[in-house]
């Protein structure tokens, strides 16, 4: 099994989709899109770290993403101009990472594979790490689901209910860093945020509860991952961008469907 590179690519994309979709819902609900960008872009710094220290890339990316996410969280507590601060962090991390990789890297290093992913080169070892990471993220979200939802609505309400919203927010930060580390090879640092946000945003107009949104987002993410890979294979297009394009197509379709459904419901209510 797993000998075929295309099969390995599908299984890796499936693992990333499973973790990214429900986490992406929280990214959307808590308006953390820019936060996700900053964390993902730090992935390139992680690659530089791996080159400098001869570490394997995934743990190095995890460390860099976690450091960036922690820095951004600390900043969120203080600064008011969060948007600007995160923009500064996100783009500086990307630029610094690219410069560092150029300074440290070998001549043959393929930057494109880090920026947009290289899913067709996924190894069996990568698969194991992707699925362990995805399992960890899903376990964390499942365990803290209700507390996280409450803290999203009101941190004080969560505190009054006996949970620690600060600790749960750090849990989300950790989950984000893990997804960045495992998604780097699948879609690359530039498109990780898209993989988080698009399925959740596509699910939104069709659901009435947070659980339904997470489930439908997961369905969309799986569809985008597997469908995008098929398209990439059929038309010889880059895999990561093809997955994101499929997710964007699902978003447009779902939004149109949601608008149509609301019109029908309203017309029905008027009768």
């Amino acid at each position: 099994m797993f000998d075929d590179f295309f099969l390995r690519a599908n299984i890796a994309a499936l693992g990333v989709a499973l973790a990214a979709a429900p986490l992406g819902c929280f990214v959307v609900w808590r308006r953390m899109a820019y936060f996700g960008d900053a964390t993902a872009h730090a992935g390139i710094l992680g690659i530089a770290l791996a080159l400098a220290t001869d570490m394997p890339p995934m743990p190095a990316v995890l460390i860099a993403a976690l450091a960036m996410a922690s820095a951004a969280t600390a900043l969120a507590g203080r600064a008011r101009a969060m948007d600007t601060a995160l923009g500064v962090l996100a783009h500086s991390a990307l630029a610094a990472g690219l410069v560092a990789v150029a300074l440290l890297g070998h001549v043959r290093l393929d930057l494109m594979s880090y920026l947009f992913g290289d899913i067709l080169a996924v190894t069996r070892g990568d698969l194991l790490i992707v699925w362990i990471g995805a399992g960890l993220v899903l376990a964390l979200l499942g365990w803290r689901w209700n507390a996280l939802l409450t803290a999203t609505l009101s941190p004080d309400l969560a505190r009054a209910g006996g949970s620690a919203p600060g600790r749960d927010a750090f849990g989300l930060t950790l989950a984000l860093a893990i997804v960045v580390a495992v998604a780097l090879k699948v879609v690359g640092v530039l498109l990780i945020t898209a993989l988080l946000i698009l399925p959740a945003a596509a699910a939104r107009p069709l659901v009435r509860t947070p659980e339904a949104m997470a489930l439908l987002a997961t369905v969309f993410a799986i569809g985008a991952a597997l469908g995008g890979l098929q398209l990439a294979f059929a038309f010889d297009t880059p895999a990561g961008p093809s997955i994101v394009c499929t997710a964007a197509g699902l978003f447009v379709t779902a939004t149109g469907l949601g608008t149509a459904l609301r019109r029908i419901t309203r017309a029905g209510a008027a009768d």
């Binding site: 609505l153 009101s154 949970s163 659901v207 949104m213």
Partner: peptide, 27 residues
């Protein structure tokens, strides 16, 4: 036993939440 009513909710329109579901949070 304490009941707490916060000043407001940080309710983003992207978060679908029915009244009944909200009353079942966190337990």
């Amino acid at each position: 036993r304490v009941g707490y009513v916060p000043q407001s909710l940080a309710l983003d329109p992207t978060l679908p939440m029915t009244v009944t579901r909200f009353l079942n949070l966190p337990r």
